[in-house]
């Protein structure tokens, strides 16, 4: 096993995961807001994405690693620290990768009418969370918020599925932003 796989976990899991969860909760509850989230390091991932995985995932959460993020080193890190099964998009509770590599969104579960929560959460690794490219309204937004998004059409299509649909986290460095399925996205 690579040394990389053994390192990069939390030194103090209960406390670091509590701070990380609050950052994720705040980000998803307030689309457009950028939060800091840190404490974990994984091969080829931003600190934010590694920390989010470590905070939310375990043996009960199948993960899909998109091409470009499906390295052996990351697979071993996940096996050691998280124990999550690696699966294809159609069985993923979480999906991780760059935006283009994660496409198409139609490959991931959107939940069922009785259980809309059984939908994939996508963790999208991006270069940066600014400058904003989209205008956001909806739950969590008092008037209007702004956010950098890779494109806008897929999020409009996702919103049209509500209450089904995908929920997104965008990660870069130590930063995280969230976009739940309820957000109405328009070009800036």
């Amino acid at each position: 096993m690579l040394d990389d796989a053994l390192n990069g976990g939390f030194e103090n899991p209960p406390v670091q995961s509590s701070h990380a969860f609050r950052a994720a909760l705040s980000a998803l509850a307030r689309p457009g807001r950028v939060e800091r989230i840190m404490g974990a390091e994984a091969p080829g991932l931003s600190e934010a994405a590694a920390t989010l995985l470590l905070t939310l995932c375990d043996a009960e959460t199948p993960i899909y690693l998109a091409p470009g993020h499906d390295s052996e080193a990351l697979g071993q890190w996940i096996a050691f620290h998280i124990g999550a099964p690696l699966v294809g998009p159609s069985h993923a509770m979480f999906a991780l990768g760059a935006w283009d590599a994660l496409m198409p969104l139609t490959g991931y579960p959107v939940g069922t009418p009785e259980y809309p929560d059984r939908a994939t959460t996508l963790i999208v690794e991006v270069e940066a969370l600014t400058p904003p490219t989209a205008r956001l309204t909806g739950p969590g937004v008092e008037t209007v918020a702004r956010m950098r998004l890779p494109e806008t059409d897929p999020f409009r299509a996702n919103r049209a599925l509500f209450p089904l649909g995908h929920d997104f986290f965008f990660t870069a460095g130590e930063q995280i932003a969230g976009l739940p399925r309820t957000t109405i996205v328009e070009d800036l």
Binding site: S17, F21, A24, L28, D58, D117
Partner: peptide, 24 residues
């Protein structure tokens, strides 16, 4: 454990909380 619950239980509740926020 910190805040009584074990980490696995907290992760499960945290995942439920995030879905709850996403589907008000």
């Amino acid at each position: 454990n910190f805040a009584y619950l074990d980490e696995q239980t907290k992760r499960m509740i945290r995942r439920a909380l995030l879905k709850a926020v996403a589907i008000p």
